[in-house]
Design a protein around this nucleic acid. Structure first.
Length: 471
DNA sequence: ATAGCCTTGAGA
DNA sequence: TCTCAAGGCTAT
């Protein structure tokens, strides 16, 4: 599922091969999806990711229609508690959006509408902190449109002469100006910050989130939750985790810029994939470095944790991108490009195709569970603060953060899907599948590295080696 | 309660 | 001054 793996031995480059043949496996065109797997709209002409109605502008974090904007506002402002009468699998489209507010609100959260954008003080007018994000999103969409319409984005494949000669030509010729980027520094230099002095984050397992039982109108037992005013509908810690999340659009721009910096003309598929994985790793390290709790750790412990979980985080990143924004039947890469899964299945080597298949199954599981951004933010902390990592100086702290993250996730799931008992356990099961799959993927990559030709001088290889030398 | 239209006001 | 994403109003 991750884009980082080179071709199977004896077979051709997965992504390179994917790019051959009649239909281009990578494209920028995306169906507006009325289902849970909402595509990102390219402009106002596109459809609301919640219900498929006409988009009226950016509302609470993304382009939505007027009615979903109003619905989201009413729900958050009035602290409404909905309960789905079915199994929380109701269709939310233009015709049926009024039928189940519970599923509609879940879908709002799932596609990325931001609770924080609803103003607690109800002040009108002006701009909020999302302004720059909307601007970047608009710019990115314009960039893409220009690339498509002016033929500036070209994808073609080299002659079928074997793995090492397959090339993917990614050429941006119009309206795209890469940011200057330095050669990637090693991990240790990315973690130069000493542990935070001054006030530390509380490590208590209590939040100001309360849960009490109450009876609903129909007489059935229901859980009613009260929320803190700063963190409507979610535990404080989940809010905290959410604030640590990186800016996806900035990451996408950076990686696209790096790809342009690669050998002009014909970068190999493999080096492109390495750039994607490598740059994603940089963003992961940056995320961790600036995240709550992690920045309190000593650099040695930070290194140990990252060395232990980098591949899990990389896999999680790709899986979650596909859960939240992906389109059925294709693999959404960090750059916003898509690869047809059928093409992977038929053209990649057995090992790689198997890994991608397992990743896809994980995506399906998480789609069924309707995992949202809040839960993903918690899961990332569960992965990062792994108490099983050996020789940690502050093992107790790591364990405590892990427990808190787990408790926060449990509280959140109890609130948003109280009637779906076992959902929390299912999320944890997905977490162990992430661990298992990432181990296999890492082994695969390491074998490829040993059998030759994985470009050195990148964070990816550094991580791979660091972990092996620890093991 | 919903959803289309109106008003507001900080920042470009 | 203009823009546009907030909140508000109101017919349905």
């Amino acid at each position: 599922m991750t884009p980082l793996f080179p071709e199977d031995a004896g077979s051709v480059s997965a992504a390179g091969v994917l790019l051959q043949g009649a239909q281009p496996p990578i494209n920028y065109t995306r169906d507006p999806d009325p289902g849970w797997r909402a595509g990102r709209p390219a402009c106002l002409k596109e459809l609301c990711p919640v219900c498929g109605d006409k988009v009226s502008g950016y509302h609470y974090g993304l382009l939505t229609c007027e009615s979903c904007k109003g619905f989201f506002k009413r729900t958050v402002q009035n602290n409404k508690q909905y309960v789905c009468a079915e199994k929380q699998e109701c269709t939310v489209d233009r015709g049926q959006r009024k039928r189940c507010p519970s599923c509609r609100f879940h879908k709002c959260l799932h596609v990325g509408m931001r609770l924080e954008a609803v103003r607690a003080d109800r002040k009108r007018g002006g701009r909020n902190k999302f302004g720059p994000m909307y601007k970047r999103d608009r710019a990115l969409k314009q960039q893409r449109e220009a690339l498509i319409h002016h033929g500036g984005f070209r994808l073609d494949s080299g002659p079928p002469l074997g793995p090492s000669t397959h090339h993917m030509h990614l050429t941006f010729t119009n309206g795209f100006h890469p940011l200057p980027m330095a050669q990637p520094p090693p991990l240790c230099s990315l973690l130069p910050f000493p542990p935070l002095a001054g006030p530390q984050y509380q490590c208590s397992s209590l939040s100001n989130w309360t849960v009490k039982s109450q009876h609903s109108n129909d007489g059935s037992a229901a859980r009613i939750h009260s929320f803190s005013p700063q963190a409507p509908r979610m535990p404080q810690l989940v809010m905290e985790f959410l604030h640590c999340e990186p800016d996806e659009l900035q990451l996408q721009s950076k990686i696209a810029a790096r790809i342009l910096q690669e050998e002009p003309g014909a970068p190999s598929t493999f080096s492109l994939m390495c750039v994607m994985a490598d740059q994603t790793l940089f963003s992961i390290v940056e995320w961790a470095r600036t995240s709550v709790f992690f920045k309190q750790l000593k650099v040695d412990d930070q290194m140990k944790l990252l060395h232990s979980c980098w591949s899990e985080l990389l896999l999680l990143d790709t899986v979650c991108r596909n859960v939240l924004q992906g389109r059925e039947g294709s693999l959404l890469l960090v750059t916003g490009q898509e690869v047809e899964l059928s093409y992977v299945a038929s053209h990649a080597g057995l090992t790689l195709a198997g890994l991608v298949q397992r990743g896809q199954e994980l995506v399906e599981k998480l789609l069924i569970l309707k995992v949202d951004r809040q839960e993903i933010a918690c899961i990332k902390f569960l992965v990062l603060f792994n108490p099983d990592v050996k020789q940690l100086e502050d093992h107790q702290f790591v364990e405590s953060v892990h427990e808190q993250a787990e408790a926060a996730l449990l509280e959140y799931t109890l609130c948003t899907s109280a009637h779906l008992l076992g959902r929390f356990a299912h999320l944890l099961l997905c977490l162990s599948e992430i661990r298992s799959l990432s181990t296999h993927a890492e082994d695969y990559l390491y074998c490829k590295h040993l059998s030759g030709g994985v470009p050195c001088n990148n964070l990816l290889i550094e991580m791979l080696h660091a972990k092996r030398s620890c093991a």
